[in-house]
Design a binder for these strands. Structure first.
Lengths: 138, 138
DNA sequence: GCATAATACTTGCAAATTGCAAGTAAAAAC
DNA sequence: GTTTTTACTTGCAATTTGCAAGTATTATGC
């Protein structure tokens, strides 16, 4: 069980204690926007996460209740990671990171998604949250 | 000049390259919600940031154009840090961290601010952004 | 005008974390 | 029954963090 030290009672600080590093939110991004759910899929993202870091972060996210781990339906040698409601609730955070990065950094992003986020943020957030919930039932 | 490596062209990833650590967003939080502007003030927050980390992060934030550094109006031995528009644009990110932390972690937060964020998020974001812009002119 | 305090860092070093490469183990495919 | 797939674990060097102490410039008090 991965323990976690909380530095203060401030909600920004406690959120950062869980999510504040270079990799954790990328895993959640891959689940929400790319529909990924397995260790092997997470390893294939453009940022090339090291295998030990991925294993560590998945363990933290599971211990903190943002995702669940279960044996895959098709193969016993495979695990499927799914978002809990606590994990689904990080979608608004991911969206704000997308909007900030798209505005202020050199990035490449699907223009359709960006336009959707800029004009109908709340509905788009809700759409991806609903999609994640439905995957969790599958 | 603090350089920064970008791991990919994904906007979440590039945002994390700048903001993805345990301390950076706490500095921005202190500027936006506590009106702090000096090195000494940042050191006094509940999370007890080490002096070298603070100096490093302020340099990164300045190099990345999220804040500006200037000699204080009252004392030549003091510096005043202010948010640029790029910095002001992180307020929605901070707000989502507040809401997630307040919902899912044990935290203490001003009930007035929380209620305001829950019922009138956009207006509250705009209010704190405007406040930060006005401080930058002072 | 000189000692003390305030302000903003910098430096040194041990401990923790990260990143890379290679190795392991169970299940699946051929 | 050998090879491949899948999910890790391990070892180790390099980087980052965290703590304590030191430095440098400006301001204050007598």
């Amino acid at each position: 069980m991965k323990e976690l030290k909380h530095r203060s009672t401030c909600p920004v600080s406690t959120s950062l204690d869980v999510l504040g590093d270079r990799w954790t939110l990328l895993i959640l991004r891959d689940m929400v926007f790319a529909g990924k759910s397995t260790y092997g899929q997470f390893l294939q993202s453009a940022e090339k996460m090291a295998t030990n870091i991925l294993a560590d972060r998945l363990a933290v996210l599971e211990a903190q209740g943002l995702l669940t781990k279960a044996v895959a339906a098709d193969k016993k040698s495979k695990f499927t990671y799914r978002l809990t409601e606590k994990g689904v609730d990080t979608v608004p955070i991911l969206v704000e990171f997308i909007l900030w990065g798209a505005k202020h950094c050199p990035t490449i992003i699907d223009p359709g998604l960006l336009a959707e986020l800029q004009t109908e943020k709340d509905a788009t957030v809700a759409k991806y949250q609903q999609r994640a919930r439905e995957q969790a039932l599958a």
